[in-house]
Computed example of a mutant assay.
Amino acid sequence: MPEIRPANPQFSSGPCAKRPGWSLDALKGALVGRSHRSKPGKAKLAKVIDLSREILNIPADYRIGIVPASDTGAVEMALWSLLGARGVDMLAWESFGKDWVTDVAKQLKLPDVRTFTAPYGELPDLTQVDWTRDVVFTWNGTTSGVRVPNGDWISDSREGLAICDATSATFAMDLPWSKLDVVTWSWQKVLGGEAAHGMLVLSPRAVERLESYKPAWPLPKIFRMTKDGKIVEGIFKGETINTPSMIAVEDAIDGLTWAKEIGGLPALIGRSQANLKAIADWAARTDWVDFLPVKAETRSCTSICLKIVDPWATAQPADAQAEIAKKLASLLEKEGVALDAGAYRDAPPGIRIWGGATVETADIEALLPWLDWAYATVKAG
């Protein structure tokens, strides 16, 4: 059994670890008991928007809104409000991408939908995408650990909209904003904020679609972004559609302030990449484990997904392989060295380690010998 333990055993992929040094004192300035519609309340919400724009280098003519129901709510707002004006290509290579396929094909029941899927660990053929159509995709597969390596495959002369669920990529990967028309994320992912709130970014092209196209289906109140054919600008100035938690808002400001203080996006990306490198170096010298992503350039630096490749394990029936991975994760949790480190329920059996910017590389490095110990313990019976 290793002697050194991670100082912070929280490696969950959402909600994620808090920033280093976080405590409840960070929330002392929260406007508890105050209306979010008050002048100070609106200022707090606007600060989240402004800091997000500054840190992520979001273009000045892109609108940024705080919306209900986390990243899921933000994605749903985009799908239900924008799709249907033209055909749509859906890309999916993990569970959340598949959820969006279900929404578009089975809930909205759009007549012209093409779906391109890939098994866990791989990307679909991105060259098949037709940019005269709308395209919906995740930048980073939270449950597969597979990300698109860059935005080169996205056309600069596209006619359709590029709609991107970037919840486990934002603040850890460099997004090419000029190639994206809709981008969503949640507070509880890379910066470890509290749940229930989503972020929605719209390009001028997306706003034009909102103002020129009316879906054939009714929209719930929390999805409505236009009134009388014009976008509701207040949504993108901190006037939220429903009541936000001002404690969660304060926590988001704290995470964003920390990100700015340590050097902004380059520093956040560097911290996350260092976490990935530590695991990659260990995996390269470890014979029982490998990355779930097939290609190195598609490995996520946030949701780092690993599979067990030891012949002893892979020779077992599928249910036995799943049990091995489950026992491994349970043993790590029992010892208090890695919480929530098992693979997502729909993913192949294995390990998922969050490597986002709030995780210290020293904690990743302390965890790795425990993974070896835990696997050897499970294998020994």
Rank of each mutant, 00 (worst) to 15 (best):
I4F: 06
P6K: 06
N8F: 00
F11W: 09
F11M: 13
S13Q: 10
S13H: 00
G14V: 09
P15V: 14
C16P: 02
G21L: 07
W22P: 03
W22Y: 15
A26E: 14
A26K: 07
L31E: 05
S38I: 14
G41I: 11
A43Y: 05
K44H: 08
I49P: 06
I49T: 09
L51I: 03
S52C: 09
N57G: 10
N57A: 13
I58N: 07
P59C: 08
P59T: 10
P59H: 08
A60G: 01
D61I: 12
I64W: 04
G65F: 04
V67P: 08
P68C: 12
S70Y: 11
S70C: 14
S70K: 00
E76C: 02
L82S: 03
L82K: 05
L83D: 12
G84I: 15
R86L: 07
G87T: 13
G87I: 08
D89H: 14
D89L: 08
W93C: 13
S95W: 00
F96L: 13
D103Q: 13
L110I: 09
V113E: 15
A118V: 03
A118N: 04
A118R: 04
Y120G: 06
Y120V: 03
T132K: 05
T132S: 12
T138L: 11
T138E: 06
W139C: 05
G141T: 02
S144H: 04
P149C: 00
W153R: 01
D156L: 14
S157H: 14
E159C: 00
A162F: 02
I163F: 05
A169E: 01
A169V: 04
F171P: 01
L180C: 12
D181G: 08
V182M: 07
V183W: 03
Q188E: 15
G192F: 04
G193T: 12
A196E: 15
H197I: 11
M199E: 02
V201R: 01
L202K: 01
A206L: 05
E211G: 02
W217Y: 14
P218A: 12
P220S: 03
F223G: 06
R224E: 15
M225S: 14
T226E: 07
G229V: 10
T240N: 06
P244A: 09
I247W: 04
I247E: 12
A248K: 14
D251L: 03
D251Q: 15
T257Q: 11
K260G: 12
E261R: 09
E261F: 06
G263A: 10
G264L: 08
G264F: 07
L265H: 02
L265M: 10
P266W: 15
G270N: 09
R271H: 12
R271K: 15
L276N: 05
I279N: 05
D281C: 07
W282D: 14
A283S: 14
A284S: 15
T286L: 08
V289C: 07
V289I: 15
V294R: 15
T298L: 01
S300H: 08
S300N: 07
S300Y: 07
C301A: 14
L306S: 13
I308N: 06
V309P: 01
D310E: 11
D310R: 13
P311L: 06
P317V: 04
I324W: 12
L332D: 00
E335T: 08
L339M: 09
A341Y: 06
G342F: 00
Y344E: 13
A362W: 05
A362E: 13
I364G: 03
E365V: 00
W370P: 08
K379T: 08
K379D: 06
